[in-house]
Simulated assay, not measured.
Amino acid sequence: MPLILISGYPSSGKTFRSLQLIDFFNRKITESDEPKVKRLKVHHIDDSSLGLSRDVYAASKPEKDARATFSSAIKRVLNRDAIVVADGMNYIKGFRYQLYCEAKAVETPNCVVHVGTPIDKCRELNDEVLKAGAGGYESEIFENLVFRYEEPNGMSRWDAPLFTVPCDDAKPPCEAIWEAMVGSDGRAKVVRPNAATVLKPASEQNYLYELDKTTSDVLAAIKTWQQDHPGEGGAEVKVSDAKQSIILPTTAPSLPQLQRLRRQFIGLNRQHSLSKSRIRDLFVDYLNDAFQS
């Protein structure tokens, strides 16, 4: 059953919203007469339960290790009889995409719940907790996380369906989330994995070389087009041997932006092999999704 990603700024109330959802889910399971619903078990995954300090966000290496720990904990319990509430900032778009792939690989739906507390309110709440000595993020870490936060976008496959919870709402749209993820009779839509999301060990000869070379070739096609059409955006760039074209955003992406997207794609697919013949098409698809969000 579903993976529910909680996302929001630091100190936005993500755990509070997670516990509201968990209470609602447990009540629905208890009250249901449907066998498929009765056997569901709710799992709450958060930094605290994994023993992760908020100081891990002060440097890239411990933060990367923390994300790996968080992801591994989700994968251990994610199955068709589980509702997994992943209570973290989940602020990196590529990380949400990775977890979306994990959900599809076990044929279970997923959604994102965006805790929409404004930055100033989050900063105020964080300062109060810090002063009380009850946790919170150090000021520098807080501001850095806010700066790097990549807000969920329901137009992206991995962020859909997207449920936003304004800070003034008494509770999340629990019933709507339940219907979308579980269904009234426990027969929610079955998710079928596809070539883009099935995770399997890298096995094809020279796979990493092809992953690196093919993604470089796609960026080269974009750079060549930009050199021929300086300053233009919102155009269609044809890529040799790709089934579809790249649709550039209105504001043309810079080289550092393109390289960052390429590194994200390679990082997501380094350990689980795509068919070499599919790398080009899937990278084009990944770029188009990123440009639309």
Rank of each mutant, 00 (worst) to 15 (best):
E236Q: 09
R278K: 14
L211T: 11
S156F: 01
M181S: 01
S49G: 05
R148K: 07
E236S: 11
P253F: 01
K213C: 09
E151T: 11
L162P: 07
I83W: 07
L261T: 00
L40K: 01
K93C: 04
H114E: 12
Y9N: 14
S216M: 09
E102R: 05
L50N: 09
A66M: 08
A188G: 15
P62A: 03
R192K: 15
G234R: 07
Q98L: 13
D33R: 13
V56T: 15
R39W: 12
S156K: 05
L282E: 08
E151Y: 10
S48E: 14
A68Y: 14
C167M: 09
V115W: 03
Q264F: 04
S71R: 12
K104G: 15
T250V: 10
A242Y: 00
K41G: 11
E175D: 14
D47F: 01
V239H: 00
S49W: 04
V198Q: 14
V77I: 08
T251H: 08
R80S: 15
R67Y: 15
I266N: 06
P249M: 01
L52M: 10
K171F: 06
V129E: 13
V112Q: 00
L282S: 11
F95R: 14
R263P: 06
Y149V: 00
P193Q: 08
A180V: 01
F70M: 09
F291L: 00
G94M: 12
K171Y: 10
A86V: 00
A66N: 08
A180P: 01
C122V: 02
N153R: 10
A188N: 05
S11L: 02
R96N: 03
E232M: 13
Q226T: 10
E236V: 10
S72N: 12
G8Q: 02
N153F: 12
T215M: 03
S53F: 10
G94S: 15
H229W: 10
A196L: 08
C167V: 14
Y137P: 02
K200P: 03
M181N: 00
Y209M: 12
Y97W: 13
V198D: 01
P10T: 01
A242C: 06
K75Y: 03
G51R: 10
S277C: 13
D159R: 04
A202E: 09
L52K: 00
Y100I: 03
A134M: 13
N144S: 14
H43L: 00
K131I: 04
A252G: 02
A103L: 04
S49D: 07
I92D: 11
Q292E: 07
I246K: 00
H272T: 15
P62G: 11
V115I: 15
F25H: 01
T164Y: 03
L219S: 08
I92F: 14
K75E: 15
V84C: 02
A202W: 05
K189H: 11
E140C: 02
H272W: 09
D289L: 05
W225T: 07
D23Q: 15
D289T: 12
L125C: 04
Q264G: 01
N26A: 02
K36Y: 08
V115R: 02
A235I: 04
H229L: 05
S245M: 01
W225R: 02
D120V: 12
P256T: 00
E128F: 06
A188K: 04
L145M: 15
Y97M: 05
G135L: 02
T224I: 13
L19D: 06
